[in-house]
């Protein structure tokens, strides 16, 4: 066998999904945005819908997500991605439309938009990155910051007496009748990443089947603003975030159930 033949014989077992562009991202080492992007891209590839997908990026660390996904995209104002996605979907109902939003974007400034998008049963998918902090602006308290968690705007730790309690968005949006599929997953280890990908697939399948609003909340890391190494950040998700934000399926509409059984 010649060297060239040997190359031809090689089987590709892992490569960049077509839905991701071959460009360096600006994300910090140990940040899970890259994993979340990849999961979304792999699912869109596997479903064969890249060419009819329109992504809506938020304001926050993933503000430049449209530069990394290989598909049409828009960049929304802070918190308004679900409204923009609604406008797109209503005139392009055959297209796949998703928002990719952080916790400040979705759970603080944009909470009105996401709740009403869910309650309308808007047939879009939301990927919700919950890392319990404002990353892009340098580590301020988020609506999902844990009690006692130190940030640059809760310097002695989040005091629930004065700042209230972290919001559990998956539980809240599961309460909307229009929600078809609302689940929480985590990206802190391989097993959870695989489970997260399954959920992202079901969320997009639910959209393709026209079943209504779908959201996958992903517990994510921010080692830079948490002041941790990447491994410490993963452990912190498991030890601190998962207990407050239990992983699980919060809303699986009857019509979505058959999608769970499919491999």
């Amino acid at each position: 066998m010649t060297a060239v033949e040997a190359l031809v014989e090689e089987q590709i077992v892992y490569q960049r999904p077509e839905s991701l562009l071959e460009v360096p991202t600006h994300y910090c080492p140990g940040c899970t945005h890259g994993i979340a992007h990849r999961i979304v891209a792999e699912v869109l590839d596997e479903l064969g819908v890249r060419e009819r997908t329109i992504g809506v990026s938020p304001v926050g660390c993933s503000v430049l997500a449209y530069k990394y996904f290989n598909m049409d995209g828009a960049e929304a104002a802070h918190g308004r991605a679900p409204a923009m996605a609604t406008g797109i979907k209503r005139v392009m109902p055959d297209h796949v439309v998703f928002t990719y939003q952080g916790d400040g974007d979705l759970a603080a400034i944009g909470i009105g938009e996401i709740i009403h998008t869910a309650t309308r049963g808007e047939n879009i998918t939301t990927i919700f990155i919950n890392n319990a902090i404002y990353g892009m602006t340098g580590g301020q308290m988020a609506p999902t910051t844990l009690p006692g968690q130190r940030t640059t705007s809760s310097v002695t730790g989040r005091d629930v007496e004065t700042t209230g309690f972290p919001i559990r968005m998956a539980e809240m949006l599961a309460g909307m009748t229009g929600s078809a599929y609302v689940v929480r997953r985590s990206l802190h280890n391989v097993k959870e990443i695989n489970r997260a990908k399954q959920a992202v697939r079901v969320a997009f399948q639910a959209q393709l089947a026209g079943l209504g609003f779908s959201m996958v909340e992903l517990l994510s890391s921010c080692p830079t603003n948490w002041g941790m190494s990447a491994p410490e950040a993963m452990k912190w998700i498991e030890d601190n975030m998962v207990p407050y934000y239990p992983l699980g399926d919060y809303k699986v509409a009857d019509a979505v159930q058959p999608l769970l059984k499919r491999k």
Partner: peptide, 13 residues
Amino acid sequence: VASINMVYGAACT
């Protein structure tokens, strides 16, 4: 706020 962003989204297409 939502109205104008829905307009923005639809007009993007």
